[in-house]
Amino acid sequence: MRRRLLRWFARRPAASGGALAAPGLLWVAAFFLAPIAVMLGYSVRERGLYGGVAPGLTLEHYGRFLEPLYLEVLGRTVLWALVTTAACLLLGYPVAYVIARAKRWRQILLFLVILPFWTSFLVRMFAMIFLLRDTGLVNTLLQRLGLTTDPIQLLYTPGAVLIGMVYGFLPLMVLPIYASLEKLDDSLLEAAEVLGANGPTRFARVVWPLSLPGVVAGCLLTFIPALGSFVPSDLLGGAKQVMIGNLIQNQFTAARNWPFGSAAAFAMMALVLVAVVGYLRRRDAREVVG
């Protein structure tokens, strides 16, 4: 029996690949793709009385985005995600570069970036609260040093949300940049030096262009979760200035307007898809060329 089965698969290589992939793909199709289709379905339904959906199709939930209130939320979300990404690039690039050039310390330096990547996001946000609240470590230190007498309002400000997001997503920027810098061939730098290029020129003409794939991947990996986040703005911003994530979460919990929440989520998903497809096409084009 076993031999016959094996022989059957040996003659059909595509079938064995398919058979191995099928359980996992079915799972992802059932619990990832299908739910997104359901969500899309919800987004064009009328809102029901008690939080459900009513019969009838409508596009009004998408139309609501054009109201000034929601345009403001959308604009703030995109702006904060962009600022977070830029700050992460600025802080993360030197770290990635130092890890890639390190010899003896490389493994431990790398581990020190991987560790926060996997450490509970919730715990890390709480650590920020612990630093920034009125009786927190920063205010306590400032008062001890005599720089202020009363605590400064740090928590529940847009600044706190941005610091929290940078703190939370920074490892996502460092790791891909490191991966592309690690492949950088030393002899290229030596060649540039021999040809008379000074430090900044070597960086601008050799290091930066070769690290660009990692930079693009890192920016994407930072921008997408920043765009979709609601925990930092909820915990550190006190939910005073909401992002799309807070809006969606609220529609699915307190406000119980699932169709509008679904429309907002689908709008976010569309942004993500555009970014990912653009990235993949660019990468594939690069592979064909190089």
């Binding site: 793909l25 992802v28 199709a29 619990f31 990832f32 793709l33 299908a34 739910p35 997104i36 359901v38 969500m39 919800y42 994407l220 990996l221 997408i224 979760p225 765009l227 979709g228 986040s229 609601f230 994530g245 969606i248 979460q249 699915f252 699932w258 929440g261 679904s262 989520a265 976010m268 998903m269 993500v272 898809l273 990912v276 993949l280």
Partner: peptide, 21 residues
């Protein structure tokens, strides 16, 4: 591509779409 999409999809979207489903 589907697997990569599952990695980059914001968590909130995975959460609410599963809830809806």
């Amino acid at each position: 591509s589907l697997l990569y999409l599952a990695i980059v999809t914001p968590e909130i979207i995975m959460g609410i779409s599963l809830l809806a489903a």
